[in-house]
Design a protein around this nucleic acid. Structure first.
Length: 497
DNA sequence: TTTTGAGTTGTTCGA
DNA sequence: GTCGAACAACTCAAA
């Protein structure tokens, strides 16, 4: 159709596709739009600048390296080189469009407070030069401005949000589209930097062994995870997802963060399974609502620009958090003396990921038992998680801390012993990640400090030497947190009166 | 406009 | 051992 339209005219000007958090070919709206008017040039920019978002954490860098390797290979198979550049997209994108004589530039939208003005500036610059700009919804099912309450506001409670959003998700997900046929172009003026030169992989020391064993970054790995999840885990997701020793969650979070798989594909896969097998209805709905939380979190950072940096409930902004680097470090390294907490923190350190149930437990422990600022925990997760995502990370931490939207009430303080006994009753999870306790009987596995001396000795455990004594006493810490949070409330009331 | 019901994931205490 | 209530009111969303 394009050929007929252009007739004898010179060939169409090329289009530039700017890859960002959408490192895939499938269901990629920017790529589809670009492919419709001639050859394409694909670029990824490692954005570096004080006003260009947070520097990537170590685990994200590792993932990005492998994900770009995968995307580069997939594009190369189609005869297209992925151009890598480092720097400020406000200069790089117009410059590249200029060199290419591009007729249009396309990208999929992001929703960060820092990225929106950057994108707007680039768009203005390009359109001012007569270059068309196309931006698209690709990383979410609902735009943050799309789901409104009856009175036109944005939702602050998840359940009504998701009730309103779900029909939109269904409709939008039907628009899923495969990769289009593509034509590349070569331009000797445009030279890619080498991925190696970005030094994204850890060197001294190389801590990435556990990550290599756990993950396959890239589009194929994402697809594989999705298929495996739908086939083997969806049918028991509602319960299975709470058992950290079971691989019963989707493991899609890092793939979704980098956009290696389209959220529409994920949504549709669950929907299709639910249609094919009505017995999956309940479990499937639980999974869909987890995807809904992702939409909700994106919506929050869009409407509250300082959400990643400040407690959403203002009463918490004056909270006297403890700033204790030694307990923070014990938490980070999995040396708190509470096995379920330590297991989670060590799984995170080794694999770049932690089971969601355990994320709640360790977060509650840092914020409520240790009374440390949720932002200290958020920062650690940012540096260590392969799925670190500004919106999801901040929303999760604020939810646990009690200062976020629709947050846990302040009196909900996870008991690390009973949580361990409830969700890791056989101790598989703790024994995997805290091997020095492996010989303890189940009865004491989650509370080794209560074990009789002869049991400890028989299990080869010497508290304080082979495994730490608890860094805080649960009952005392709990009371302290309740008092602190209650006083916070009183202060606020006082301010208002 | 006012009213009403609801609100991801918990713990502890006492009957 | 099991169960319901208390925890603290408050904000949100919708009728």
């Amino acid at each position: 159709m394009q050929i007929a339209h252009f007739g004898q005219n010179p060939p169409a000007r090329p289009s530039l596709v700017w890859f960002r958090e959408d490192l895939r070919l499938d269901d990629h709206p920017a790529l589809i739009a670009a492919s419709q008017s001639g050859p394409i040039c694909a670029i990824y920019i490692l954005e570096e600048g004080t006003d260009l978002g947070r520097p990537l954490g170590g685990a994200l860098k590792w993932w990005l390296h492998h994900s770009l390797t995968s995307l580069k290979a997939n594009l190369a198979q189609l005869g297209i080189e992925l151009i890598l550049k480092r720097g400020d997209p406000r200069h790089l994108i117009p410059d590249l469009a200029n060199k290419l004589n591009a007729g249009s530039v396309h990208w999929n939208r992001r929703y960060y407070a820092w990225s929106r003005p950057v994108d707007a500036a680039i768009k203005a610059e390009l359109t001012g030069r007569g270059v068309q700009v196309g931006t698209y919804k690709a990383s979410v099912l609902t735009e943050p401005w799309e789901i409104k309450t009856g009175s036109g506001g944005n939702f602050k409670v998840f359940t009504p949000f998701f009730r309103a959003a779900q029909p939109h998700c269904d409709t939008w997900a039907e628009q899923v589209a495969p990769a289009p046929p593509l034509t590349g172009l070569s331009n000797p003026e445009i030279v890619s930097e080498s991925l190696q030169s970005w030094n994204l992989l850890p060197k001294a020391p190389d801590w990435s062994g556990g990550l290599d064993q756990t993950w396959q970054p890239g589009e194929a790995g994402a697809q594989r995870r999705l298929n495996a999840f739908i086939e083997t885990s969806l049918h028991n997701y509602g319960e299975g997802r709470n058992i950290p020793s079971k691989p019963a969650t989707s493991f899609l979070s890092p793939h979704l963060h980098f956009g290696e798989i389209s959220i529409r594909r994920v949504w549709n896969a669950a929907r299709a399974a639910m249609r094919a097998n009505p017995a999956l209805q309940t479990d499937g709905q639980v999974f869909l609502s987890e995807l809904g939380w992702r939409e909700f979190s994106t919506q929050l950072i869009f409407h509250y620009e300082d959400f990643p940096e400040e407690s959403w409930k203002e009463a918490f902004r004056a909270f006297p958090w403890k700033n204790d680097s030694s307990t923070l470090r014990a938490w980070q390294r999995g040396q708190t003396g509470y096995p379920i907490v330590d297991a989670g923190m060590r799984q995170l350190w080794r694999t770049g990921w932690m089971h969601n149930r355990v994320r709640m437990i360790v977060a509650s422990f840092l914020v409520k038992h240790l009374l440390q600022d949720w932002r200290a925990g958020e920062a650690w997760f940012w540096d260590t998680l392969v799925d670190a995502d500004v919106a999801n990370n901040a929303a999760g931490w604020q939810w646990v801390a009690g200062c976020g939207a629709d947050a846990a009430p302040y009196f909900r303080i996870f008991n690390p012993m009973s949580q361990g006994e409830k969700f890791d009753p056989d101790g598989h999870y703790v024994r995997t990640w805290v091997p020095e306790l492996a010989q303890l009987p189940n009865k004491y596995l989650h509370r080794p400090f209560e074990a009789p001396t002869e049991i400890l000795r028989g299990s080869g455990v010497h508290l304080g030497r082979t495994y730490p004594l608890p860094i805080v006493n649960h009952e005392k810490a709990r009371k302290q947190a309740l008092d602190a949070l209650a006083s916070l409330k009183q202060n606020v009331t006082g301010d208002l009166v």
